[in-house]
Write a protein that binds this DNA or RNA. Structure first.
Lengths: 224, 224
DNA sequence: ATTATTAATTTTGCATTCAAAATGCAATGG
DNA sequence: CCATTGCATTTTGAATGCAAAATTAATAAT
């Protein structure tokens, strides 16, 4: 008997599965901001009834990814600059806290893993491979979050992550913003390796503020 | 025509109403931690069908107030010390941010209102009137939160507030903890009136950390 | 032609129903 | 007597059904 065969069978309710799938569709732009969601359309698409779909919509509404208005249904939330100006500072505060907590409890092994993500990210940067860059970037932030050993914090940050991540699909980084972000990541790694919680918190907060600036610049460029 | 008469008619879905009512029941301890929730029992109690009730349960599960396990139903989340040790730092980070942001945009009129809440709170303290003390205390924190002008932050903080508030119903303050909390509130008001964002953030973060200490002390006393 | 009004259709909100899974209990065997 | 198995009951998960509200289309009036 192989050991993996005795792992508990993972069973998910339809509603849970739908929450994840719909979130992905929204974050990746498959469901356009502002577009109306017809329950029947989606329940047909996923081949489920409206009941679990509606349960999922309630949850996504609380996450701010969709908006519900009584008797009039759901629309995919718009992602205005104003929304991002709200979300980024909150994300900054949460990331700062996870950095601070992570420095207290992260293991050497975990730090080493972060370093590997970091180097993979640098490689992607050298090749200007944006998707891979984002992938490793996200792995770093996720690793720090997990090292904070605070599931509540994790949950809150993940709830916001959707909104923040959507911005990536609307805003490309300029060359020098990108360079700056990479430089910031050098300090992030340094602070983490030095277990400098206060410092890491500060850097992460600033990092998020700069991300917001990137989005602002991009949107301004679109206007012009 | 009174101005309040023209306010938009608040139409709420059953599910929304249920979320609020159930949250209140949980926060105030009407639904005991760890107790199983039978859908039929509750839907009968509120005289609604299971459908909107189930929608509400999904939402409350995301807020961490109840736990769902597939095919096995919902239980009211336990409120262990470990849970509070997670929640309080997160709340601290969010409160710190709201303090920081509030100092940027709060009006003189709003500060004056906070001062009135503060004085009402002092009066309740003088009379050792705990319920009134909490009421005004909460009004202060809510006012600061609103002054931050960040609905996203408000939403996040309110999602956590349930968990934190539940602690109040399990932990009474010792006389000197109470005195200390009041003293901290003096600095909160001072920092707010001086529009010292950095300072207010720091005080609020410490304030939440001390609240956690109060809970710890209380639980330790119960053990002994 | 454009707006107002009314009827038809669609869509939502909720209740009901049905199947699948879990729980409790009695019977059986060790 | 206790543990295990099989069965009845309860409870959950999801589909279906139905009424109310909203939207769209069609008609009438200015």
């Amino acid at each position: 008997m192989s050991s993996s065969a005795v792992l508990p069978i993972r069973r998910r309710s339809l509603h849970d599965e739908l929450v994840d799938r719909l979130r992905l569709m929204i974050v990746e732009g498959d469901l356009a901001p502002g577009s109306k969601i017809f329950e029947k359309e989606l329940s047909d698409l996923f081949a489920v009834s409206r009941t679990p779909l509606r349960e999922a919509l309630k949850v996504l509404a609380r996450e701010g990814l969709i908006e519900l208005s009584p008797n009039r249904g759901a629309t995919v939330a718009e992602l205005t600059l104003a929304d991002l100006e709200e979300a980024f500072p909150v994300m900054g505060a949460l990331e700062a806290l996870s950095g601070e907590l992570a420095c207290r409890s992260i293991t050497d092994r975990e730090v080493a893993q972060v370093r590997r993500y970091h180097e993979a990210m640098l490689e992607a940067y050298a090749k200007r491979n944006m998707p891979n860059y984002f992938k490793h970037n996200q792995a770093i932030h996720q690793a720090i979050l997990e090292a904070a050993r605070n599931p509540t914090l994790e949950q809150m940050q993940n709830a916001l992550a959707g909104r923040v991540r959507r911005a990536r699909y609307m805003a490309n980084m300029s060359e020098d913003r990108w360079a700056k972000a990479v430089a910031e990541h050098e300090s992030i790694l340094a602070a983490l390796e030095a277990r400098n919680g206060e410092g890491l918190a500060q850097i992460l907060k600033a990092h998020l503020a700069n991300k917001l600036e990137t989005v602002r610049e991009h949107l301004a460029a679109l206007q012009a």
